[in-house]
Computed example of a mutant assay.
Amino acid sequence: MDVTPEYCQMMAKYNAWQNSQVRAACEKLTEAELRADRGAFFGSVMATLNHVLWGDTLWMSRLEGGAGPAVTAQNHADICPTFAVWSQERSRMDQRILQWADRVKDADLSGDLQWHAVMLGKDMAKPMGLCVVHMFNHQTHHRGQIHAMLTGLGRDPGDTDLVLMPEGKSWH
Rank of each mutant, 00 (worst) to 15 (best):
G158I: 07
H51F: 08
P5F: 07
K169I: 15
L113E: 01
K126G: 04
L150A: 00
L150G: 03
T140Y: 04
D106T: 09
F136H: 00
C80E: 00
M135E: 02
M124Q: 07
N137F: 02
A36Y: 09
A125F: 02
L53I: 01
N50K: 02
A67S: 15
K28T: 14
G43S: 05
M46S: 02
D161Y: 09
G55E: 00
R96C: 07
V104H: 04
Y7M: 08
Q21N: 15
G168D: 05
P69H: 02
M128S: 00
V22T: 12
L150F: 06
K13H: 13
V45A: 02
D161I: 09
A32F: 10
P69Q: 05
D2G: 11
L53G: 00
H51D: 01
S20L: 15
D108S: 04
W86G: 01
V132G: 05
Q74C: 11
V133G: 03
V22W: 03
D156H: 12
H141T: 03
G111H: 05
W17E: 00
R62H: 07
H147C: 13
Q88L: 13
L98Q: 07
A12E: 00
V3H: 00
G66D: 09
M10N: 13
L98H: 03
D108R: 06
L29D: 02
Q88N: 11
R62F: 03
K105V: 11
M11F: 12
K105D: 13
W17Y: 13
A12K: 01
M124K: 05
T30V: 04
R92S: 14
L113V: 10
T160K: 11
Q139R: 07
D56W: 00
P69T: 00
E89P: 07
V3T: 02
A148R: 04
T160A: 11
S61A: 10
A12S: 08
W54G: 01
R143H: 09
T48K: 00
E64D: 15
W100H: 14
R62W: 08
D156V: 10
A77L: 13
P157R: 06
S170V: 13
F41N: 04
Q9Y: 01
V133C: 08
Q21W: 12
P69F: 00
L109A: 07
L98N: 03
S110L: 15
C8K: 00
T57C: 12
M119P: 11
A107Q: 14
A117V: 10
A101H: 03
H116C: 10
F41C: 13
Q74Y: 11
W115D: 02
W59A: 03
L29T: 03
H141I: 06
Q145D: 08
L29H: 05
D112W: 09
K13N: 12
Q139C: 10
D78C: 15
R35I: 06
Y7T: 10
W115K: 11
G66L: 13
T57Q: 15
L150T: 04
Q9N: 07
H51P: 01
D161E: 10
S20M: 14
